[in-house]
Design a binder for these strands. Structure first.
Lengths: 253, 253
DNA sequence: AGTGTTAGAATGGTCCAGCCAATTGCGCGT
DNA sequence: ACGCGCAATTGGCTGGACCATTCTAACACT
């Protein structure tokens, strides 16, 4: 996988030179992971297929079993393979879990690599697109699911000692699911996770009025009034950002 | 790391039950990776900080050094830590490389988990948002960079035996960079990678006219005519999708 | 004083050989 | 026919050993 080189090269020059960072001594397991990745990318191995056993790979690649295990760990953490144990166990090409993407984004947010104002802007744009599509495509079932979730959330939020849960993520994912577009679900979920990380780090108190707000949104979607829905949620996202920003200023984070 | 549970639970029921998959016997290294992840998420460790050495962690967590190494491999592959060797080397919390996200998306695409029509739709929406912002914010420098890249691309494309390179990814990233929004760059790049994977798997021949098209886009951006730019690129993305679809039908992939 | 040079220490990188735990199939006994 | 347990195969994990890389600090030579 030549993923790091292009980025690195371009960030330095104008892209015209053909230089690449001096082939840093890659570690053994990287070569293994790379080969497996390529084999999957080129469809030589498809989801569900079983790779050779650890012991076999150790022979094939001429490394110790430990080296193979590290490579597998890396691939597993990327969501490319999954492991089953027992006879007929082994390393299998995974089906592809969409959550790996939002986990990446969450990690980036954990590291503070995502400026909040950029997340906010992207979120407003993305959510607006989602709402427009949702107005066209949401089925009654989709809307029911959202309404059920609102009830759950209200119950969670009104309980004494309400903790931050995954409600933030859930609502937006359900909205995105109403577009019937998997990719939009992934993107929406990713941005929600970026905010979620921040909320977990001592954010503002839980807003007890979320229920009302969300019900209004659903109402607009039912009526096919995308512009009102967008306006409503945009104001909400901005308000949320402001309350997070002040909360962080108080803590001094 | 409770990332797999919420998704799994919700996909089954209505979200009202509090059931969680029977705590599958987690492997030792997962506990380690989880603790380190949490420590980073809660800012107990910040980018640049050094974690204990492998040997120390092995003592702390009461596992073998191999176990620790597997945990580190997993975190490294998530882009959370990076390793330096030598005295004063060790495991350091990373700065956060945006490429981890697009790599995730690319992996998902490799696994065939992203329906092409969903990618196309998301790409059209996202690129439209990007172009609107770019029309407002692009500096002369931004546009210069794009024009330079177009020249590079034309040279690459017109060479005999033109190979698919990273030009597809590059152009869209540069467009996104003109919005001066890091998050939009990440999202744009991710979707471009999803398409790139497909192109590498025997896509249609390289389009030799890309230069003209891209120059027109830049022209519209300079003129602040976002709608024309959007129309142009939307038609292009749709045409690209169609040519990929037919190419795949021929191959029988 | 300045300048190489070298020895040592600390770190991750790798290997080996072995045993444990989970899973499954097969054959034996009832 | 049924069930029970053994055996085979897989990944999970251990502990110990040694190598490769890097940096520091002491030393030797100008």
């Amino acid at each position: 996988m030549q993923q790091s080189q292009p980025g690195a090269a371009e960030s330095i020059g104008d892209g015209r030179h053909a230089f690449t960072p001096v082939a840093r001594a890659k570690r053994g397991y990287e070569y293994i992971a790379e080969q497996v990745r390529d084999a999957i990318a080129t469809r030589r191995y498809k989801p569900g297929d079983r790779l050779p056993t650890e012991r076999e790979m150790a022979e094939i690649f001429e490394v110790s079993r430990n080296g193979v295990r590290e490579a597998i760990r890396s691939l597993e953490s990327s969501g490319l393979v999954e492991i089953r144990i027992g006879v007929h166990g082994g390393v299998f090409v995974a089906a592809g879990d969409p959550q790996t993407v939002s986990r990446s984004v969450r990690d980036l947010a954990s590291l503070g690599a995502l400026p909040p104002e950029n997340v906010l802007e992207a979120r407003i744009l993305l959510t607006s697109d989602v709402l427009r599509l949702a107005c066209e495509r949401a089925t009654e079932e989709d809307l029911k699911r959202i309404e059920d979730d609102i009830l759950v959330t209200e119950r969670e939020v009104l309980q004494p000692g309400a903790q931050r849960t995954f409600q933030i993520t859930r609502f937006y994912r359900l909205l995105a699911e109403a577009t019937h577009n998997k990719v939009l679900v992934i993107l929406t979920d990713s941005l929600a996770q970026a905010v979620h990380v921040r909320l977990l780090r001592g954010g503002p108190p839980v807003n007890r009025r979320v229920g009302e707000l969300r019900r209004r949104i659903v109402g607009y979607i039912r009526a096919g009034d995308s512009e009102s829905a967008i306006g409503e949620i945009t104001r909400h996202l901005i308000a949320l950002e402001e309350s997070m920003a002040t909360a962080e200023r108080v803590i001094g984070a």
